[in-house]
């Protein structure tokens, strides 16, 4: 746990509280259970990696934690709000103010420049002059010279750095990352994960990351294993490697 004295960490309630989460999807012939009775708590400022093989349900869990989807059963409480009972629009509103995302496939809008992509969440949150903040963030991630480039003109690593800048733009309390280095080579991946960790620390954000990269997972304060929809937490969660 780092020593930042951010106000958001003075609250003692957990950032995320999940109880008895079950998720099923209907297929043409039968029903598939993807998550089964998952319960967990993640504290403010914690960094947590959810590790599992492809198809283990980790991405589904991330989606439910972030309120992108609603569970079949159970509750998800994010920063004091039970998001599993909110309407889609209420969840969207909550995401706009408190949640940031980093995706495996970057998810930048191709028609917008790097600067415009970063400005987008600020504008959605209703910020008056988002350009200054977006510019600062892009400079922070080392892209101060590429503000007006469109995603197509940027390399994969650069695109992910834009995405990270965007994710932190709206000053979120919790950051969700889905295989953030999955589409990058080792070296670029390392640089991007360094950046993500650094910013996370600087901002005092709670980080929830899905990955199958053990090395990346080891950099988080806590690791959760998921297999066939069941969540297990190793007894000995060591100090994070940095």
């Amino acid at each position: 746990m780092n020593q930042m004295t951010d106000l958001r960490k003075t609250d003692n309630r957990p950032m995320l509280r999940v109880s008895d989460l079950t998720h099923r999807v209907s297929l043409e012939t039968d029903t598939l259970t993807i998550l089964q009775g998952v319960s967990l708590e993640i504290n403010r400022g914690e960094s947590v990696a959810i590790v599992g093989r492809s198809g283990s349900g980790k991405t589904t869990l991330l989606g439910l934690l972030a309120g992108l989807d609603t569970p079949s059963e159970g509750t998800v409480e994010l920063d004091g709000s039970v998001i599993s009972t909110l309407s889609e629009d209420e969840r969207a509103k909550l995401r706009a103010r408190r949640v940031g995302f980093v995706f495996q496939s970057f998810q930048l809008l191709p028609a917008l420049s790097a600067l415009e992509n970063v400005m987008l969440p600020l504008e959605l949150a209703g910020m008056e002059s988002p350009q200054q903040r977006a510019r600062e963030l892009l400079e922070r991630v080392g892209l101060g010279e590429r503000l007006n480039h469109t995603p197509r003109q940027l390399s994969g690593g650069e695109q992910q750095r834009v995405a990270i800048a965007r994710a932190f733009a709206s000053d979120p309390v919790v950051m969700f990352a889905d295989e953030p280095t999955g589409n990058l080579d080792n070296r670029t991946g390392q640089a991007v994960s360094d950046l993500l960790m650094e910013l996370n620390r600087e901002q005092g954000t709670t980080l929830v990351m899905v990955t199958h990269d053990e090395h990346l997972a080891a950099r988080c304060g806590r690791q959760l294993h998921i297999e066939a929809g069941l969540l297990t937490e190793p007894e000995t969660a060591g100090e994070p490697e940095i």
């Binding site: 629009d89 509103k93 987008l120 959605l124 949150a125």
Partner: peptide, 16 residues
């Protein structure tokens, strides 16, 4: 569709 999903993720409501 992808753009809309992203905008929703970033917090834009259906009405928006």
């Amino acid at each position: 569709r992808d753009t809309v999903a992203l905008l929703k993720t970033l917090g834009l409501s259906s009405r928006g």
